[in-house]
């Protein structure tokens, strides 16, 4: 009886750990961090051995429990990489705390859910996008007016990301669509208003759409030794960047030839 209980316990622990790992991945953590965290957490919860394999789209974890029972759980991850550093940091702090003194599994689950359910502030995202697009178009040599228009288009990008992205089959298609629409918009506006510079406005908005986080994380993963997941994500982010370039190029080509 006791043994069976323990077995159930191990499974519960592993399930909670997978939840944690999935959340870390989805909020923008590197693969290496996820593997490392799961390994430490498992040992903190009394596992004798942990076999953790994580790539950007799936996780496989085998845990050797202290009573000799071995269990494996896998998890497929379909959500594209997001970025929410607040949640990432909180999850990280939670796992650090847990490694020092493990809390009850039910409580861990609860805490993870609590962090996940925090409201996502779209307003903050919007303001951030406007500020960065505007200031980067000024940074690369545009006038203040260019920055202002770049901000306007940043709002547009955010709205597209919020309302249109879920209808696109994947991120590359969305990048293509988004950059094309934004490119056309910018070309039209710069044709109508003579003081504006097409290039600087576009550069500001390109900076927003470049998958910088994915690229940095992938390079990091490759160097740390997670070559498979690093290259997966690198390929993915290069594809997104290519789609972005194609979208803008088509828009520029149209605006030149009209």
């Amino acid at each position: 009886m006791g043994e069976e209980n323990d077995f159930g316990q191990a499974r519960k622990i592993l399930r909670a750990l997978l939840d944690l790992g999935q959340a870390l991945l989805e909020y923008g953590g590197e693969v290496n961090r996820v593997e490392d965290t799961l390994e430490r957490m498992g040992r903190a919860y009394g596992a004798k051995g942990m076999n953790v394999f994580v790539i950007t789209t799936s996780m496989v974890v085998t845990m050797l429990h202290k009573d000799g029972e071995e269990i494996t759980l896998t998890r497929r991850i379909r959500k594209p990489i997001g970025n929410d550093f607040t949640k990432l940091e909180q999850l990280n702090a939670l796992s650090r705390k847990c490694c020092q003194e493990p809390m009850k599994v039910a409580k861990l689950q609860e805490k993870i859910q609590e962090i996940k359910n925090q409201p996502y502030s779209f307003k903050k995202y919007l303001i951030g996008a406007m500020l960065s697009a505007g200031s980067f178009s000024v940074f690369f040599g545009g006038s203040l007016l260019d920055g202002l228009f770049s901000m306007l288009f940043a709002i547009f990008i955010c709205l597209l990301q919020r309302y249109v992205q879920k209808y696109c089959t994947n991120m590359a298609v969305f990048q293509l669509f988004c950059s094309f629409v934004i490119g056309i918009g910018i070309s039209v506006v710069t044709k109508c208003v003579p003081f504006l510079h097409l290039d600087y406005i576009m550069i500001g908005d390109i900076m927003l759409l470049i998958p910088g986080l994915a690229m940095t994380n992938s390079v990091r993963d490759i160097l740390v030794g997670d070559t498979i997941s690093g290259f997966l994500r690198l390929a993915e982010s290069l594809l997104w960047a290519g789609a972005l370039a194609c979208g803008f190029m088509t828009a520029i080509w149209l605006s030149f030839s009209l």
Partner: peptide
């Protein structure tokens, strides 16, 4: 440029939901 980098970085901080 420095000023705009500063503002832009804060903007990206907000974008990534940094605390």
């Amino acid at each position: 440029q420095l000023l705009s980098v500063f503002i832009g970085c804060i903007g990206f901080g907000m974008l990534f939901h940094l605390q």
